[in-house]
Amino acid sequence: MTHANPQTAGPTTVGRVFLRLVFDGWRGMFGWIIGIAAVLGLYLPLYPSIASDQMTELINNLPTELVEVLGYEDVVTGAGYTQATFFGLLGYVLIAIAATAWGAAFIAGTEETGRLELTLAHAVGRVQYATESLAALLAKLLMLALVVYLMIWALNDPSELDLSAANLLAVTIAWASLGLLSGTAALAVGALSGRRLWAIAAGAGVAVLGYLFDAVGSTNDDLQWLYDLSPYHWAYGNSPLAQGFDWAGLALLWGLCAVFIALTIYGLARRDILG
């Protein structure tokens, strides 16, 4: 027999899944960066023209409930404006969509195309695949966070935002953590069910409910208990861009992410892969 090499050995596969998931999606990543840069480049330079006495007067004349729902209480400060226009609204939507799309694609998406079956039939373990998917999600979110941080910092002086570097870091991390929460929710439901649509619903659901609970909680003192259920409020409730790191809020966010991560690993490790 010429075939006498039982190949129990071979190159390590550690990190291979991670690299593929990160690099195969470079076009999408590029698109998200362009989108985020466009939003920041359009909104932030407008701040000097908005931070006027007339604007303060206009805001004061609006119904307080509306102002609070929109998060425009401090819109005339640089921090308040950046929070209200980017982190609290459009930036939130963008990162929730990006993270949900990635989280749903990495496990449920590859499973639906049959690619996961092919990968897992090779020398890749279930726990390894789940862990590397999480790492890829985290890496992509950190890349977006870096772009946001650098872009805002670059616009800080020209747009007269008067932001502190440390507080900007605090809010960027809170923002990326909200993305991580939607992304891990999508990963977990994808890993448990194998269905991409359910995974997308989970990621989007977490983002939408978080925003709604915060918005509704702000309208009425009797409804403020909704704040406790809102990841959006955990991240932004104490205005990190004005006040700096809110470790308690971040701990809650990361704690819930950890639950989703555990569900992801458990789900993929114990279940049959669907065809």
Binding site: A9, D24, A121, H122, G275
Partner: peptide, 20 residues
């Protein structure tokens, strides 16, 4: 686990690849 599958070549029933 994974080590055993190095010794196997597997063709899935439905090769539906969407890679660019």
């Amino acid at each position: 686990g994974a080590a055993m599958r190095r010794r196997i070549g597997y063709l899935p029933g439905d090769v539906n690849l969407t890679d660019r």
